[in-house]
Simulated assay, not measured.
Amino acid sequence: MIKPSMPVNEAERLAALQRYRILDTDREQGFDDLVTIARALCGTRMGAVTLIDHDRQWFKALQGLEGIQTPREEAFCAHTILQPLQLTVVEDALQDARFSGNPSVLGEPHIRFYAGAPLLSSDGYALGSLCVFDSIPGVLGGQQAEALQALSRQVGKLLEMRVLRQQIDHHRAEHDWYEAHLAQYYQQLEQLNMELSEQTRTDPLTGLPNRRALAAALSEAIERGMAVTPAVAIVDIDHFKMVNDIHGHDEGDRVLTELAGTLRSQFAGRGMAARYGGEEFVILMPETPMQQAELQCQYLRESVSLLPVGLPITLSIGLAAHRPGETAQDTLRRADAALYQAKHQGRDRVVVAD
């Protein structure tokens, strides 16, 4: 393990941190919410808002494990503040000389993956970080990196609003102007949080709704209790692993993106197409009779031959209509069983669940 060095501006940095009067304060929902969004976007079990004091790392927000603070010399974020203008990403801590002997790597919580975005004061000093981490190695995609940096800026705004609130409390009688600006800050933050929350329901590669969004939409369609129950189709690209193995993952991503475009154009306004995971997609067709739903799936299966990918792509599709009394998961399980039958029968076909 390599202990983090001190920033060259350590005295000024600590003075900036003390100005915020935030160390050893109670947990606050605003900070917890930003950690929740960061974890969802990056797909990690753990996350935190950390502040690096003279000899400790203190947690303003912490999710996925318990704790209040750790020694600074063991803190990943103490390395992050040494590069205040960029992310620090550790894909596998056991392979990084700085952290391979770290007690948090060798022992609980067995950190392997870490990504931290520095938290900057209004005058540019790195105070700590918004970080996500996990006990398995990982990577951080480009959109995830941009989102993590955007969230860290929002943590910085929360810090500034705390200072502003302290000033308002002290001068409330003669400083009504501050109240208007504080409300504006909160409105901007709420809007950004709504936008970032929406990102947690969107697949970053295809732009389609993701599994979480599909589950919510299916449950809502079931709860509406219309006369014609919703139909659900699970779509799988046949032999997709061979596309990745032979042509590379970039080509595989292109196939997924092109198929997503076809799904979006065919089902926009008439339901929802979502990426369910890997090469699987799910189509929700509310208030669609089974015969019509099957025709739409057959049309989709035939239309993939027109995708501009230069590869012979086929689809296997399992289709099920929701039954009264079923849960959303029950319907999806029956559609998945029908998909398995389609594969077992030779692929490139639509099978309707019993």
Rank of each mutant, 00 (worst) to 15 (best):
K3V: 05
P4F: 08
P4K: 03
S5G: 11
M6A: 13
E12G: 11
R13L: 12
A15K: 13
Q18P: 00
R21L: 08
R21H: 11
I22D: 01
I22Q: 02
T25M: 09
G30Y: 00
F31S: 10
D33I: 09
L41H: 08
L41D: 01
V49T: 05
R56Y: 00
A61G: 06
L62T: 03
Q63G: 04
L65S: 12
Q69V: 00
P71T: 11
E73Q: 12
E74T: 07
E74K: 00
F76V: 05
T80A: 08
L82W: 04
L85M: 09
L85K: 13
L87V: 10
L94E: 15
A97G: 12
R98F: 07
V105T: 15
L106E: 09
H110L: 11
I111D: 09
I111N: 02
F113T: 03
Y114E: 07
A115V: 06
S121G: 06
A126C: 04
G128H: 08
F133P: 01
D134V: 03
I136K: 10
P137F: 12
P137H: 13
A147L: 07
L148E: 08
Q149W: 03
A150H: 08
L151C: 03
L158W: 08
M161I: 05
R162P: 00
V163Q: 15
Q166V: 06
H170L: 15
R172C: 11
H175M: 14
H175N: 15
W177E: 11
W177A: 15
W177R: 15
A180G: 09
L182S: 13
Q187D: 00
Q187G: 09
Q188R: 13
E190F: 00
E190T: 10
Q191R: 08
Q191N: 09
L192T: 04
N193A: 03
N193K: 02
M194A: 13
M194D: 14
E198N: 07
T202I: 15
L205N: 10
L205E: 13
G207C: 06
G207W: 03
L208Y: 09
A215C: 06
A217I: 01
S219A: 14
I222M: 15
E223A: 15
R224N: 14
G225R: 13
A227I: 14
V232P: 01
I234W: 01
D238V: 03
D238A: 07
H249W: 07
H249P: 15
R254D: 10
L256I: 09
L259I: 05
L259E: 05
A260G: 05
G277M: 10
E280C: 09
E280Q: 12
V282M: 12
V282K: 10
T288G: 01
M290D: 03
Q291G: 10
A293V: 08
V304P: 03
P308M: 08
S316L: 14
L319W: 01
P324R: 07
A328N: 03
T331W: 01
L332D: 02
R333W: 00
R333L: 14
L339R: 04
L339D: 02
L339T: 04
Q345T: 06
G346Q: 11
G346F: 05
R347Y: 06
D348C: 04
R349W: 04
V350H: 02
V350G: 04
V351E: 14
V351W: 02
D354W: 07
